[in-house]
């Protein structure tokens, strides 16, 4: 396959970026998208040029480190895939592929296609946990949890924190990310004690980090690799309103 790449190059957070064009002639269908970029970087290394920086780690769709907006879609053309699971068989010979970083104020570009997602850490720090200190826990089976509730909590907990929801959102809202954690913990009996403080702190942190507000376009749930549901956002809003009522 012959592929033309238009890749965003940017030296640092403050510098101006632009698209740069590359040509690859020996791309194979079986290659993963990132292996195609490896190939590009090898060809640059041989020429002594600076490689294209992109984030990746586990390459099996679970760590959430890979990002990229490919042809205008976060994580590429297949819905609910991560970039690392995207393969070149999703493209045709002669295609031109635009590769850009995840874009949002809260995700400043570090270099080329790498972005800084520390804001997600900050949101979790605000309250995305259950404060059970090591060694304090009661016997696990003391609190039975209905199978369906546990499974539903899992659906939310499955979020890999990649940030595709933010990247694809026209408002750069992290509502889906925040709501996944809120819902995960609110659904479980263990998460009840800190329920009120958690939603207040996390929403405040979300806003302070500069994310926009959710307008329910639903684009985030369409790209989410773990298929976190829009209902989680409704659940988050419910938790917020519940906390509001409890405060007064």
């Amino acid at each position: 396959m012959k592929i033309t790449l238009k890749i965003w190059r940017q030296d640092g957070p403050k510098s101006k970026g632009k698209l740069e064009t590359f040509q690859l002639n020996e791309v194979e269908q079986d290659m993963s998208f990132l292996e195609m970029l490896d190939m590009l970087n090898e060809s640059l290394a041989v020429k002594g040029e600076r490689s294209v920086e992109f984030d990746h780690d586990c390459r099996e769709g679970i760590c959430g480190q890979c990002s990229l907006v490919i042809n205008g879609q976060a994580h590429g053309p297949e819905s609910h895939y991560t970039t690392c699971q995207t393969h070149m068989r999703s493209f045709k010979d002669g295609d031109t592929i635009f590769i850009e970083p995840f874009r949002a104020k809260a995700f400043p570009v570090i270099r080329d296609l790498k972005v800084n997602r520390d804001s997600f850490d900050t949101i979790i720090q605000a309250g995305g946990y259950i404060s059970a200190l090591t060694g304090n826990a009661p016997e696990a089976n003391n609190i039975p949890i209905h199978h369906n509730i546990s499974e539903s909590a899992f659906d939310s907990a499955a979020c890999i924190g990649c940030g595709a929801c933010v990247a694809t959102c026209k408002n750069s809202s992290a509502a889906l990310f925040v709501s996944a954690k809120i819902s995960h913990l609110a659904k479980l009996p263990q998460g009840q004690v800190e329920r009120k403080e958690r939603i207040e702190y996390m929403i405040t942190a979300h806003d302070e980090e500069g994310f926009g507000s959710c307008t329910h376009t639903g684009a985030c749930a369409m790209v989410c690799p773990q298929e976190v549901q829009l209902l989680d956002i409704a659940r988050m809003n419910y938790e917020f309103n519940r906390a509001l009522c409890k405060a007064t």
Binding site: T134, H147, H184, L185, L188
Partner: peptide, 16 residues
């Protein structure tokens, strides 16, 4: 025990 207390949604039977 520790992980359950931290909110890990381990697989459960219908009995809970």
């Amino acid at each position: 025990d520790h992980m359950t207390a931290q909110g890990v949604p381990f697989g459960r039977e219908y009995s809970g």
